[in-house]
């Protein structure tokens, strides 16, 4: 696996999903326990709105969803969310590497996972959102295949270049327990001047044969690392790699 000087990861997210809801009080207690690492707390209120158009006139139904405790570090780069059915640990850029992220996951997992018995995790996912910032040196168009191997196939409609695109695929991975979603699109406008930016979003997840014991769940999370790395490397070209070195 390549190690990059400037990894293009804008957000790395690991999520544990359970089918055993956690009470508000327990979530609050968990959130309080991580206050040292995550100074800022926001209690997120959610509302689910459904619009029913069957039978003529539209009717609107709304339900309040359980509160989530969202905490961020002082530099806003580390995020943890304690929700009624999930734990999310995320890291924005600059990405410090898997080992650092893994340690933060471990600390939050200990608080969330309720001892050795675990919480009955039904989905485990690692999502890495990358943004490839390509310098523009006066060009009017960028050849996508110079940077990406995940491309749209477009018939000959116009001589002019695409203004945007979106490609998404879901498939099994080489590991029979894990699947993936991969997506690429344009980021417009680019956050950098004189650049155009492409998003490459890689989500590897497991919903089968997840161990019930708490310690075993963390061990299988390590399987996600080579999977997401391999997918990333296969989705980009050497010219893209040169941008991160």
């Amino acid at each position: 696996m390549n190690s990059y000087l400037r990894p293009p990861i804008v957000e790395a997210v690991v999520e544990f999903l359970t089918n055993s809801p956690i009470s508000f009080d327990d979530l609050q207690a968990m959130s309080n326990k991580v206050a040292g690492d995550y100074k800022n707390q926001t209690i997120e209120k959610g509302i689910e709105v459904r619009i029913d158009t069957l039978g003529g006139a539209a009717t609107i139904h709304s339900d309040q969803t359980p509160d989530r405790f969202r905490r961020t570090s002082d530099d806003q780069a580390d995020i943890v969310i304690f929700a009624d059915t999930s734990l999310i640990v995320a890291r924005a850029a600059p990405y410090p590497g898997w080992d650092v992220l893994s340690e933060r996951i471990r600390k939050n997992w200990r608080i969330w996972s309720k001892g050795q018995s675990g919480r009955g995790v039904v989905r485990l996912g690692a999502r890495f959102i990358n943004r490839i910032d390509i310098p523009i040196n006066g060009e009017e168009r960028i050849e996508l295949s110079d940077y990406l191997n995940l491309l749209p196939q477009i018939p000959n409609i116009s001589d002019k270049p695409m203004s945007t695109f979106l490609v998404q695929a879901s498939m099994p991975t080489a590991n029979p327990h894990w699947d993936c979603n991969i997506m690429s699109t344009i980021v417009a406008p680019s956050p950098l001047l004189n650049h155009m930016s492409i998003l490459l979003d890689i989500d590897v997840f497991r919903m089968r044969d997840i161990p019930s014991k708490s310690a075993d769940v963390l061990a299988i999370l390590e399987e996600a690392r080579p999977l997401k790395n391999t997918i990333f490397e296969r989705c980009i070209t050497d010219r893209a790699r040169d941008l991160f070195r």
Partner: peptide
């Protein structure tokens, strides 16, 4: 055609929500 994209896209990206990737919801 070759798979070229405008270097200065004028259309702001509005990424549609993805059912397959929606597990992280608000995050």
């Amino acid at each position: 055609t070759t798979q070229t994209v405008a270097a200065h896209p004028r259309t702001p990206t509005a990424l549609p929500p993805s059912g397959a990737a929606g597990a992280y919801s608000t995050q």
